[in-house]
Design a protein around this nucleic acid. Sequence first.
DNA 1: AGAATTACCTGAGCGC
DNA 2: TGCGCTCAGGTAATTC
Length: 270
Amino acid sequence: MPELPEVEVTRLGISGHLVGNKVVGVCVHSAKLRSMVPPELAGVLTGQKIQSVERRGKYLILKCSAGSLLVHLGMTGHLRIVAGGRAAGPHDHFDLLFASGVLLRLNDVRRFGSLHWTAADPAKHKLLSGIGPEPLTGAFSAEYLYQKSRGRKVAVQPFIMNSAVVAGVGNIYAAESLFACGVLPTTPAGSLSAADCAKLAAAIKEVLSRSIATGSSSMDFCREDGKLAYFPQTLGVYDREGEPCRECGGKIRRGRFGNRSTFFCPNCQH
DNA sequence: AGAATTACCTGAGCGC
DNA sequence: TGCGCTCAGGTAATTC
């Protein structure tokens, strides 16, 4: 399930194939994603040259002179560069055909992904305008996290998963970051000390950048059979309920916020 | 008003 | 075989 590192590696992988390349066709195999694929997409994209491929949180932004295509991969979505003419398979929903002969193909088993078109500055689009700082930039700092969390009673895990607080941190990396810095996911955000916030901000940056580094060295988007799945990384706590903690050997426990699971080591996290 | 919580979209995979 | 349940991210809706 793509989180920020997977989206960033996708961006790095597809960017070189797309920038400067002209869209010569749009093929919508299925318009029914989490939100309907905008019907005007073929009309506005055909003939456009991709100027840049950017990322904001978990959104990819394909910038053209007439506007921008926003792509969200949801839980199971992935984008792949494939040879033109290759037949669409199950769960292939959308293709952009390029002048160079390649296709950018969106595959999404569970259809949680979405596509949006905006003619204006994408940063002003309502899906992006309310998003908090990028976690890998200086704007997301210990000081920022400390100030932002003051007075907040919500548990720190859902707090850092709130995209208005910080962009692109999902369930897996939230749990991993909290394990990495020794903070229990149930801790009220407002009760974190300045030192806790410093450790947590550093842990989020470390966990995300390590995953991007791992992913970008192992992915090959040119391969038609290349799969975008979990990066071959070792998870410390996520989905390891009952298994031994890699630090202390104690049992990893599962907790719950609403209908979201969290995983933690009660011995290593306080 | 602003924060916290809940529902919703989807479909694979699971247990029974 | 088939039903009911779970899970995921992010937004909208609702409650507090």
